[in-house]
Amino acid sequence: MLRYLAVRAFRAAVTIALVVTFAFVVLRMSGDPAILIMGPEVPPEALAAFRRAWGLDQPIWVQYVRYFGAILNGDLGMSMRDNRPAIEMVAERIPATLALTVPALVLKLAVGIPLGVWAALHQGTGFDRAVMVAAVFGFAIPSFVLALVLVLVFSVDLGWLPSGGQGTVAHMILPVLTLGLGGAAALARFTRSAMLEVLGRPYIRTASAKGLPWAAVVRGHALPNAAIPTVTLVGFLVGSLIAGAVVVESVFSWPGVGRMLVVAVASRDLAIVQCILLLVAATMVTSNLVVDVLYGVLDPRLRHGARAAA
């Protein structure tokens, strides 16, 4: 188990390094931050000074080595716009994002898992079919479309809820719904198929043949086994707590990390973009690690170093 975790942790570190490198390459290759930040009318000397100040005049590999070395020292750089530490500016935005994504995650879990389990237990009934149709819709509709529909209905037509901005709980309802419904649909579908798969296994029939009431069979033999694959998806949802709200924050003008990322990309504020990507990669990778540990806890077959195909 320890060896297994060490391997996983090493892989996680490599993943983060790759994300950081990728972000670096893409951002430096696409557009000149000096012009984007200073504006096109600025005299060439000022641009040159800006480039020198931020080290943009150096060969790209020198920039990369400096940048990577700084990250290893915990220095994520300064915002080129505000001249403040990027990490500080990003950290200020995290609570706003979590204020949307955490309630949305709760919504996904509280709606998606019970619906999926219930649909599987009543496979083929009208309820099951209704859940599946709703799930396909919820899954297929892009979140900006869903957001616009919700705004049209609840803000424009009914006038019940604000269409953007922040401050009250009412401001949170539409963004949280937009985020939560799609995830709930995906989770319902996934949970249902995991349950159906488990319910078809011979050990379920064995449990029934032992005389256990159906409720005990479901509770004791089906749910724990179906939880194993479902944990993967839940881990993914947890991993996207930071990154998952980019579109929704933009649509609802919500001052979170996601909108900050969009603005920073547009203006090539390199340190901010890199800092956010690093943060996103780190949350993803961490939640993956937690999933791997949970797998070991839930499935004894994985506990002994040997790992079956994932």
């Binding site: 296994r201 011979p202 050990y203 029939r205 064995t206 449990a207 029934s208 043949a209 032992k210 005389g211 256990l212 009431p213 159906w214 004791g220 033999h221 724990p224 086994n225 194993i228 839930l298 499935d299 004894p300 077959r301």
Partner: peptide, 29 residues
């Protein structure tokens, strides 16, 4: 009624199946 059948299963009539590896729950002791 089903509860009475459940009392018969395993109580009056036991049953074992072909493939013991899949007939036991892999995650329970």
């Amino acid at each position: 009624p089903l509860p009475e059948v459940e009392a018969v299963r395993g109580g009056r009539i036991g049953m074992i199946f072909q493939d013991p590896a899949s007939a036991l729950n892999p995650v329970l002791r």
